[in-house]
């Protein structure tokens, strides 16, 4: 039932006052960073202990520099966080988290099918994402941003998502809204 509780976005201090990015994407950037903390990737995702942890953005970047600011100097299990921006999906196969921009909403099925079998936490806020095998889907209801998670997709990508996060999310499967 906790999963159905609405997530209240604090109205408190903006992350960056001068940032041209909308508040919505500021929150989503922080959430992306948080997922890096609460999700476990299979060990084979990294070849060595010092490998960077890539957060990729496919298509148009809605975060501008905000995401770079958020992860600057941060590490996940010793891996330094690095942001990558990709024009097409073939380039994006090496990242751990991939945010698929609204600009790619029409090609969602193709993109996701080409990422099938990769250990990538796919995140999107548009298109038929979950139905096509996406993992985390941001839903905005008024001012609140919450997310749906497809356990099946996560399982296929061999990702382990913290139960604390699952407690906050709506669980969805493909073909299910």
């Amino acid at each position: 039932m906790g999963l159905l509780l609405p997530i209240l976005l604090t109205a408190g201090a903006p992350l960056r006052a001068e940032a041209p990015v909308s508040k919505e994407y500021q929150v989503k950037a922080v959430f992306l960073f948080n997922f890096a903390q609460f999700v476990q990737w299979p060990p084979k995702s990294f070849t060595s202990a010092g490998d960077p942890f890539y957060i990729g953005i496919l298509g148009e970047d809605p975060f501008d520099a905000f995401l770079d600011e958020t992860v600057k100097g941060e590490k996940v299990d010793g891996h330094p966080l690095v942001i990558r921006r990709y024009g097409n999906v073939e380039e994006a196969t090496g990242c751990q988290i991939l945010f698929i921009s609204r600009s790619e909403a029409g090609r969602m099925a193709d993109i996701l099918s080409s990422l099938k079998g990769r250990n990538i936490l796919t995140v999107a806020d548009s298109g038929n994402f979950i139905e096509n095998g996406g993992v985390v889907y941001f839903v905005t209801e008024g001012k609140k941003i919450h997310f749906k998670i497809s356990l099946e997709a996560a399982k296929q990508a061999k990702l382990t998502i913290s139960s604390q996060v699952l407690r906050l999310a709506q669980i969805a499967g493909p073909g299910k809204e």
């Binding site: 906790g2 509780l5 609405p6 976005l9 604090t10 948080n34 996060v165």
Partner: peptide, 15 residues
């Protein structure tokens, strides 16, 4: 309460 704090979920924290 780590996730609740991280994802700014006050309701879960109160819970």
């Amino acid at each position: 309460s780590a996730a609740a704090l991280a994802f700014q979920n006050q309701a879960d924290a109160a819970n």
